[in-house]
Design a protein around this nucleic acid. Sequence first.
RNA 1: UGGCAUGGGAAUA
Length: 268
Amino acid sequence: VSVGNGLVDLYGKLKNVEDARKLFDNMPERNVVSWSAMIAGCVHNDFAEEALKLFEQMQLEGVSANDFTLSSVINACSSLGNIEKGKSLHSDVRKAGFESNLVVGSALVDMYVKCGSLRDARDVFDKMSERDAVSWTSLIAGYAEHGCGEEALDLFVKVLDEGLKLDEFTFASVLRVCARMACLVQGKQVHAYIVKAGFESNPMMGSALIDMYTKCGDTSHALVVFNKIAEQNAVSWTTLIAGYAQHGLSKEALLLFDKMVGAGIEPN
RNA sequence: UGGCAUGGGAAUA
């Protein structure tokens, strides 16, 4: 069974859901790991509906879900924006006693965020017994997405207070908030944290910083950041070009585009 | 007892 599970997982990760499914269907024996791997494979390859179907089938066959199964199938509801199913899974989580599980909790927060119910997301978040960078980022990104900049920044201050190690995903979400609010003061503070955390040359940090600086009207700092990125990718270039264009610097933007092509980056 | 599976992020439009 373990070998089969490993193969189902591998095919799913290689984006070959068809073969994963063939393997899964032909397994002489299936346990909760087999089902979880197959469900996760579907979710990661944009077959969220199929993941929900598999979950139902699993229950019909009398296999009970564990924390891994639940987080994957909750993630399926996130991508579908299916809050009804999400809520019913939330009650399954409570019944199965996975309420205090870190991963399941973060998946629920993300699910409610993607379904547009920030109240529920906040409620789950507040009730979690432990939180990591993912839990915090899910909620911060949720507030960012829904235009609740104040709440997002408030959370960021709190997580800094807790002394939790943050990753580039958290910083990217906070920078997005600063960009939207055109708040240069906050943005510069976040920039300082990024430098301190050693993420300065990270391409994702670079594009988030460029976006923040241009939306705040500081194109010269945006250029400084751009030049510090270890390896500029298409997003780095696009962000800078769009930032210049937004400020009427169309000649500079066109020049940048030529430079991008010259640097061997394919425009998309 | 151990082994295999699960959650979050950036530009443009």
